[in-house]
Amino acid sequence: MREIEAKVVTETVSALIQDACYHLADDVITALRRAEEREESPAARNVLARLLENADAAARDAIPLCQDTGMAVVFLELGQDVHIVGGDLYGAVQEGVRRAYAEGYLRKSVVNRPFSARINTQDNTPAVIHAAIVPGEKLKITALAKGFGSENMSRLAMLPPAKGRAGVVDFVVRCVDEAGANPCPPVIVGVGIGGTAEKCLLLAKEALLRKVGDPHPDSEIAALETEMLKRVNDLGIGAMGYGGRITALAVHCEVFPTHIASLPVAVNLQCHSVRHRETVL
């Protein structure tokens, strides 16, 4: 049995979120540079150049990449041989979020009573926590600061199985088309296929955590991703919706078995300001 102190979890979560909100990850910068090289539309190319400048300005001047510093989503993979000491695990995560948004000069965007008074919780908690118990004696923490311009464009469809592969592709492409300029393209398209309704949406979110443009290890799923990316980029929406060849930097799919009666498909969009970090304790 290995012991991990709750306060280490708090410090780790705080550091991961702050780093993600100020420093655009290398895989995203590489993807934006490639997009800028390939883009034919001058207006879209100008946007891509500005986004790269923005990443420099954020790091240099200590200003967050985007004013929507998101709602925090924290994924935990807890080894079953780990014992958290000196506090409870979820409490430690929430304290880490609280600290990140206060110390990091990040915007507190979470409101309570969403259907009525919409009162700001003032510290950006609660975070959404997804925990899994895994073998071993390590704790993997992944923190995602999820902006809602893109989150608002999420969709779920419980397709009849007869719709098949073509139905899945059409649904995903239609989601991106209807979202248009709203989710701040170029986007990363997270797609979940299978499971139950809530599992499918979670798969779509987990798909966003992959390095931008890394194909799925399963070749059939990787081919599906490639086809969807081409179809999405044929839409012509372009960076910020100004018209162009690059609407998405990547399409990532995660797949899970499902029931004989259904073909669930979920889309979770991520703007180019991809802000997640992970570490293993």
């Binding site: 500005r50 923005n54 954020a58 200003i63 985007c66 311009g149 701040c184 180019h272």
Partner: peptide, 11 residues
Amino acid sequence: GAIGGAGALIS
């Protein structure tokens, strides 16, 4: 339109 995600630059 302003550039979404260029919050540091616009600042």
